[in-house]
């Protein structure tokens, strides 16, 4: 009796495909990946039973040395039941995510990003504020001094406006950046309502591939 290579190859392929799918963002793909992974593992478990042999049933005239090891099969049965339960839970979670946010992508942790970027934001804001204040002080001193410096005042005012615009622009960009991560959540109910009427979840999930 010889071991079969086919089981190892199939198990390995399923494992590889499952891992690839697990690295995707949509929960549905992760779900499919986990199913493939589970099945691949089960097939690999089967290989530990050794070469093919008679069914492990006593009392059928088979010699105990010619029957296959039944323990891996018991492992597989247990693992299948567990995978089923986990798959059911993941399906529910993917559906709930889609229902709430119109997409079943796994989202980044907002708090994590916030903490990571806080230092950068603070620094930039301080710098811009300082620049703006300089211009404003210059402008105010000019305003306070002479009537005939109106031209200089206008120039300074324009420069002030420019500095303020730039400050605001950068500030807005920073804000938009921080908000972008919540964009999906923000359009939650609207998208869910729209898509509930016209198309099916599969459209949303597989839409990226078309």
């Amino acid at each position: 009796m010889t071991l079969t290579l086919a089981l190892v190859v199939v198990g390995g392929t399923l494992f590889g495909a499952g891992t690839t799918l697990l690295l995707c963002r949509p929960l549905t793909r992760i779900l499919l990946g986990s199913v493939l992974l589970g099945n691949g593992t089960n097939i690999l478990v089967l290989t530990t039973a050794g070469a093919a042999g008679h069914a492990p049933l006593l009392g059928f005239g088979h010699d105990t040395s010619s029957i296959v090891d039944p323990l891996p099969q018991a492992f597989i049965l247990t693992a299948i039941v567990i995978t089923l339960a986990l798959t059911a839970f993941l399906v529910t979670m993917a559906y709930r995510a889609w229902q709430l946010s119109g997409s079943d992508d796994v989202q980044d942790d907002v708090e994590d990003i916030r903490v990571a970027r806080r230092a950068v934001y603070m620094e930039e804001r301080e710098r811009l504020r300082a620049t703006y204040n300089d211009w404003r002080e210059a402008y105010q001193s000019m305003v306070g001094s002479e009537e005939e410096q109106r031209a200089a005042e206008r120039r300074a005012y324009q420069r002030l406006g420019k500095a303020r615009d730039r400050y605001r622009e950068l500030k807005d960009r920073a804000r938009a950046d921080a908000r972008a991560h919540r964009a999906r959540q923000a359009r939650a109910e609207q998208t869910a309502e729209e898509t509930a009427e016209e198309d099916d979840p599969w459209e949303t999930i597989l839409g990226a591939d078309r």
């Binding site: 992974l37 986990l86 993941l90 979670m93 709930r96 796994v106 989202q107 942790d109």
Partner: peptide, 13 residues
């Protein structure tokens, strides 16, 4: 759900 997704995937793996 977001937190649960991270947790579930890691646990599954």
């Amino acid at each position: 759900i977001r937190a649960g997704a991270t947790y579930a995937i890691v646990s599954l793996l």
